[in-house]
């Protein structure tokens, strides 16, 4: 699984990091940082939680 974050759409709600703190990282202002590489299998559900928590729908997993 990969995580794609649309940086133009991210508006800094920081809900992804609240839903899955071990997975999503934020910059100093609270905007989501890109996620590189594959999501470890045991974190796939957390990734989907982060995706569905985004008010802007800026996150896609798959």
């Amino acid at each position: 699984m990969k995580i794609t974050i649309d940086a133009a759409q991210c508006s800094g709600h920081a809900r992804c990091a609240a839903a899955a703190p071990g997975l999503f990282r934020l910059d100093d202002d609270g905007y989501a940082l890109p996620y590189d590489g594959d999501v470890p299998e045991d974190l796939e559900e957390a990734a989907r939680d982060g995706e569905s928590a985004c008010p802007e729908r800026a996150i896609t997993t798959g």
């Binding site: 508006s11 800094g12 709600h13 920081a14 809900r15 609270g30 939680d49 569905s52 928590a53 985004c54 008010p55 802007e56 729908r57």
Partner: peptide, 20 residues
């Protein structure tokens, strides 16, 4: 509720600055 992706703090570039 599982996903509460509301926009009570707005949406887009003007998302409430004080939301956190």
């Amino acid at each position: 509720r599982k996903a509460v992706n509301h926009i009570a703090f707005g949406s887009g570039p003007h998302r409430c600055l004080g939301s956190h």
